[in-house]
């Protein structure tokens, strides 16, 4: 194997001490050592394998089993088939939560993608102070959703927040009560979530834009194509993979959204801003309906898989073809 430059470098590196290690070992123990060396990698990986199988796959199955039982405050194993799922689909609160995740997730993903692309394109125009602007766009990603929720809860405070600010600016009639309005509260979640995550999407797109081959753009310019045309026909199609991964990440964030709701609206007013994640938490831990809560968790998993599997499938197929 020692034919190319890299392995030569490694060879020199090893003579610094590695050789000494091996020659110091007696010949008799070398078989045992060999055996150990062969098993060592597996041994090192073993705890992770066990943990993955047990705490991820095992627990998913366990939750699945619980969702088929009558469990209330404590888990029990009186099986009732799919009764909990039927109950779930009949549950008003769950219908609200499912509708909300569609509204919240849909708007959140679309707006983030839109802002992300636009900001990335703007930042790609050889802007002065690009670095500092990027820093500002991205810092929300470092914050906890609880902090974000707390901050926006205060900004959107009916009375003392944005409303007062605009009154002071002279817009006396301005009213902003979304936070306490059951029909509008879900949109406050969208605002806060977009604020937190859109900068990150911008960063993804910016990285994608920087990867576009400059010579293709130059060639198109020589052919007389205008910049908007070049973006629409050449650059954006190049960014398709970025759109896909951004979509996957954003939908993942949306489905897992729990902290933000707890901090910003608490699921209220009433249960107007419940999402599946908060529904699962409240049902399982506050209302003592473990069976129903498990069923809702399994539904969440189902949605994630429904999005993920086609994505992974296309990714893998793409790689095999390449």
């Amino acid at each position: 194997m020692k034919t190319n430059a890299t392995s030569d470098a490694a060879g020199t590196l090893s003579t610094r001490g590695l050789l000494a290690d091996s020659s110091a070992q007696g010949a008799g123990s070398s078989n045992l050592l060999d055996l150990m060396q062969r098993w060592l990698p597996k041994l090192v990986l073993a705890p992770t394998v066990v943990m993955t199988l047990l705490f991820i796959y095992g627990y998913v199955i366990w939750t699945g089993v619980l969702s088929l039982t009558k469990s209330r405050f404590l888990p029990n194993y009186n099986f009732v088939g799919f009764a909990q799922y039927e109950k779930l689909l009949d549950n008003d609160r769950w219908s609200v939560a499912s509708l909300n995740i569609v509204i919240f997730g849909g708007l959140f993903i679309l707006i983030c993608l839109f802002i992300g692309v636009v900001m990335a394109i703007l930042l790609d125009q050889k802007i002065r102070a690009e670095g500092s602007i990027r820093t500002v766009f991205l810092y929300p990603m470092a914050l906890s959703f609880i902090v974000t929720g707390t901050a926006w809860k205060w900004i959107l405070n009916p009375g003392l927040g944005l409303e007062k600010l605009l009154h002071d600016f002279g817009y006396e009639s301005f009213q902003f009560d979304w936070l306490v309005n059951p029909d509008m509260a879900i949109y406050t979640l969208v605002i806060a979530a977009v604020w937190q995550s859109s900068g990150f999407v911008m960063a993804l797109f910016l990285a994608g834009l920087r990867g576009v081959d400059g010579s293709i753009v130059k060639a198109a310019q020589l052919d007389g194509a205008s910049m908007p045309m070049i973006y629409r026909r050449i650059i954006l199609p190049h960014l398709r993979p970025v759109f896909f991964s951004a979509f996957i990440i954003l939908s993942h964030i949306a489905i897992k959204s729990f902290d933000l709701v707890m901090a910003l609206t608490g699921g209220g007013p009433g249960y107007a801003t419940d999402l599946p994640a908060t529904f699962m938490y409240v049902t399982t831990f506050s209302r003592g309906q473990i069976g129903l809560g498990s069923a809702s968790a399994m539904m969440m998993l189902g949605v994630v898989l429904a999005i993920l599997i086609p994505y992974l499938y296309s990714e893998l197929r793409g790689k095999n073809n390449a």
Partner: peptide
């Protein structure tokens, strides 16, 4: 194969493991 199985762990919503945990 194990790595693939493990990657899946990045994606699951944690709601699906918190009760057993």
């Amino acid at each position: 194969i194990f790595f693939g199985l493990m990657l899946f762990g990045c994606f699951i919503p944690f709601q699906v493991v918190i009760l057993p945990m």
